[in-house]
Design a protein around this nucleic acid. Structure first.
Length: 814
RNA sequence: GCGGAUGUGGUGAAAUUGGUAUACACGCUAGACUUAGGAUCUAGUGCUUCACGGCGUGGAGGUUCGAGUCCUCUCAUCCGCACCA
């Protein structure tokens, strides 16, 4: 019988499904492994990226299951989000119907890959039962002041008709549709992730060596911690009067307190309240006011590209140390969202300040030695023109100046972060409703927990215009949970990243408890952290930062115990490429997983995916290499005829021929390598290569016992990668004993050789090869080595002889 | 600019602690079997040279008996952040 993948694969998929083969056990005394691939968005069809992601995770899960671990390997659906609404707009399908029918289709696709997921723990994040508990967390966060509502400038995507978080703006454009993001003032809900900035940063240390260094670096940069001095500039009396005494001054933040004596002007962001006040009261020329407003309205991209621009505001402040009067400008390079939206400017020691001061002819004063006239000097040196601090090294002056300000009560050392709070409001329908109510008399009120979930209305019109929940005639009408009066429900829904921030805890919670709680502490305590998380690098900041934050927040809110980090080990898989470019529908360079499985079977698809490149690297698609993977499986399958008995034989090593010994060595080398591969390096490509080598070596000999042992071990090793064919061969040949009996012992005797082949090098260059008895002495080996290369020794003296045991001889000659 | 990575045959890629560079696979060449071959099997395949040999892991140095691997400098490519005061 030749290899027929479709018969074999459907047979085993049925068996696995009927026996519930992959459900984790309730017994918490067992050693556990939690293997998690990032859950998919139900877009409609699987793509090759999914195949890769789940093949990697499945290999790990199956490996640990076979090693006797209690394995949690769940799957679910990240099911809320814009595409469901786009389908409604374009094809008139209800988002809910679209989503659940996509899930049904994709579930079949996953099952055709033979993935060993727990079925009982599957859920979609749009299930009302999931929404219910998520809303409870949100309410708790509100009560604990971790969530608040505020009106502020937000990133708005007109295409998606919604607000975006900072993390969702890429190059000034929407992460989903690439439309340019506009700034807009509007109310929204925020999670105070900044409260956890330090912990999120510090705990990255726990992940060193466990997460890719790139991801750690990206998160660290994103949090962007910097230490410095915060102090305020007071307005001169004239300026105070001009502002009708509404402002005494403003705060600035600097990481260069050592240059404070070099401040020659200050600059405010165009959106700064003081600038707004000046414009409101017509204290600036109309045309200048207009230009300042235009500066503030520029998109982030425009502003980043724009030349430095600014205007003298006609105000002055007093330098806190020198009492000098200094002009106040507004400048487009000052960001309102960072450091109070105001800076002290030291053109002599800051590139930006220098560029600006040069353009507008502002004064400059060098306060650190070492620079050249006519440029900004940002290096180290000694302080000059700095009063009592002259002569001090600037590195020391940083601390000294902070101390000086603190002693005089003028300012203090502080820490600043680039990280901004997470805006979670979305003005869309297909999301989890934010469970709050607006009451005329009580204000913003959280819904009562017993009323959860606040579910979406089914009868909704989705046109792409405006917020469908807001447009719904009756949905938002409700009673105030506090006073009972008529009130309005919040129509914003939660960012979909909220759902993916806690799904790892939901999977860990026994499904029998899903009705009674969102997260079960004990279950989470047993299963978490996730031993191996697998997904794309595109989530390096967004999802992985949010999920880390949620873990810490849920712990502090008492929903989970003592867990620091959700994902202990992270593997970021490379992209799947075709002709050097990322596969995408728009480029038309995709490979359809269904067609691939149809033609070659799931085992070939999985084998190719893991063989063509290590999982961390990009994977270049290659049709003939897929054929090659298929060819190998056909060959493997056909060799079953070589096996007669059905047990792992006990082989007398000393009676074997050379080829038989080589075959054994190759088989056991692969077995040895597998531990490192499955537990540490994930270089499945090298394990597969090892199995191919072993099979090639087996083909060069005829001993039935060697064949039996070889296939017993090879099918054992490959089962996590190509489970169907291995299950089939194992059942047929070995009554499945090699897949259920735990570890196979590595026999050291196999590696003992009677003769050893050694390379012979002269001055480090390989010149010959010799074969010596295993127990040959060093002198014997050296003598043999010399005999093998007479022409290289002619007329030379051997000055040094180096023997590297079992590897080579190096003779140094002169 | 800051941060992170990666450079090995025609291609995807291997190579514990420094120890015979290019395993495995694809492709290619030749042959066998075949009505046929886009099936299967066998052999060959880093570059160069008639040959002995020489040269080969982006480049240049260095350490070493010996370097893809360690050190210094440098070039190229990719990714992330980016006027963060």
């Amino acid at each position: 019988m030749s290899y027929n993948p479709s018969d074999i694969e459907s047979k085993w998929q049925t068996i696995w499904s009927e026996t519930g083969a992959f459900e984790p056990l309730d017994d918490k005394s067992l050693d556990k492994k939690y293997i998690l691939s990032m859950f998919p968005f139900p877009s409609g069809r699987l793509h090759m990226g999914h195949v890769r992601n789940y093949s990697i995770g499945d290999a790990m899960a199956r490996y640990y299951r076979k090693q006797g671990y209690n394995v949690l390997h769940p799957i679910g659906w990240d099911a809320f989000g814009m595409p469901a609404e786009n389908a409604a707009i374009k094809h008139g399908r209800h988002p809910k119907e679209w989503t659940y029918s996509n899930i049904d289709y994709m579930r079949k696709e996953l099952s055709a890959l033979g993935l060993s997921f727990s079925k009982r723990r599957e859920f979609a994040t749009c299930d009302e039962l999931y929404t219910k508990w998520e809303q409870e967390f949100i309410i708790k966060m509100f009560e604990e002041k971790l969530l608040y509502r505020e009106s502020t400038t937000v990133n708005w995507c007109e295409e998606c008709h919604t607000v975006l978080a900072n993390e969702q703006v890429e190059d000034g454009c929407c992460w989903r549709c690439s439309n340019e993001v506009e700034l807009k003032e509007m109310p929204g809900y925020y999670l105070d992730i900044r409260k956890y900035a330090d912990e999120l940063l510090d705990d990255l240390k726990l992940l060193e060596g466990r997460w890719p260094s790139q991801v750690l670096a990206m998160q660290s940069n994103w949090i962007g911690k910097s230490q410095g001095l915060e102090f305020s500039f007071s307005f001169s009396n004239d300026s105070k009067e001009k502002l009708e005494n509404k402002f005494n001054g403003f705060d600035v933040f600097t990481t260069r307190p050592d240059t404070v004596y070099g401040v020659t002007y200050t600059a405010l962001a165009p959106e700064h309240p003081i600038v707004k006040e000046l414009i409101k009261n017509s204290l600036l020329d109309a045309d200048i006011a207009e230009k300042i407003i235009a500066m503030g309205n520029m998109t982030e991209v425009e502003r980043a590209k724009a030349d430095k621009e600014g205007y003298d505001l006609g105000l002055t402040v007093i330098h806190p140390l020198t009492q000098e009067e200094i002009p106040v400008w507004t400048a487009n390079f000052v960001l309102v969202s960072y450091g109070g939206g105001a800076v002290m400017s030291v053109p002599t020691h800051d590139e930006r300040d220098f560029e600006f001061a040069t353009k507008y002819n502002l004064p400059m004063k060098y306060v650190i030695s070492g620079g050249e006239e006519g440029s900004a000097y940002t290096g180290d040196g000694e302080l000059i023109n700095s009063d009592r601090l002259n002569g001090m090294k600037n590195s020391e002056a940083k601390e000294a100046v902070i101390k000086l300000f603190e002693e005089r009560g003028l300012g203090e050392g502080t820490t600043n972060y680039k990280l901004r709070n997470w805006g979670i409001s979305r003005q869309r329908y297909w999301g989890s409703p934010i469970p709050f109510v607006h009451c005329d008399s009580c204000g913003l009120v959280a819904e009562k927990v017993e009323n959860l979930p606040i579910a979406l209305p089914e009868d909704v019109e989705i046109t792409g215009e405006g917020n469908p929940l807001e447009n719904h005639p009756t949905w938002s009408n409700c009673a105030c949970p506090q006073c009972g009066a008529d009130a309005k429900r919040e129509t914003d829904t939660l960012d979909t990243f909220v759902q993916s921030s806690w799904y790892q805890f939901r999977y860990a919670t026994d499904p029998k408890k899903w009705n009674s709680c969102g997260i079960d502490k004990e279950d989470v305590d047993y299963w978490l952290g996730v031993d191996q998380y697998i997904g794309g690098i595109e989530h390096a900041i967004l999802h992985l930062l949010y999920a880390r934050f949620f873990t810490k927040a849920l712990r502090d809110l008492g929903f989970i115990d003592n867990l620091k980090e959700p994902f202990e080990n992270l593997l970021t898989q490379g992209m799947v490429l075709m002709d050097g470019a990322k596969m995408s529908k728009s480029k038309g360079n995709t490979v359809d997983p269904d067609a691939l499985i149809e033609k070659y079977g799931a085992d070939t698809a999985r084998l190719f995916t893991l063989f063509a490149a290590p999982p961390q690297k990009e994977l270049e698609w290659n049709d003939s290499a897929v054929e090659g993977a298929f060819r190998f499986l056909k060959k493997l399958y056909s060799r079953k005829s070589k096996v007669v008995g059905n047990t792992l034989p006990i082989i007398n090593q000393s009676s074997l021929t050379k080829d038989e010994k080589i075959a054994r060595v190759k088989v056991y080398e692969a077995l040895k390598r597998s531990i490192d591969v499955y537990e540490k390096t994930f270089a499945f490509n090298t394990l597969i290569a090892g199995c191919m080598e072993a099979l090639n070596a087996l083909d060069k000999q005829k001993n039935e016992e060697i064949w039996r042992e070889g296939l017993y071990i090879i099918t054992h090793l490959l089962e996590p990668i190509t489970p169907h064919i291995c299950a089939e061969l194992s059942q047929e040949l070995f009554e499945s004993k090699n897949l259920t009996g735990g570890k196979i012992e590595i026999l050291d005797e196999v590696f003992v050789q009677d003769t050893i082949t050694l390379g012979v090098a002269v001055n480090g260059k390989r010149r010959a090869e010799i074969e010596v008895e295993a127990e040959a002495s060093k002198d014997e080996i050296i003598a043999r080595a010399k005999e093998s290369i007479p022409k290289w020794l002619e007329g030379k003296n051997v000055v040094k002889e180096i023997l590297v045991p079992k590897k080579m001889v190096n003779l140094v000659v002169k």
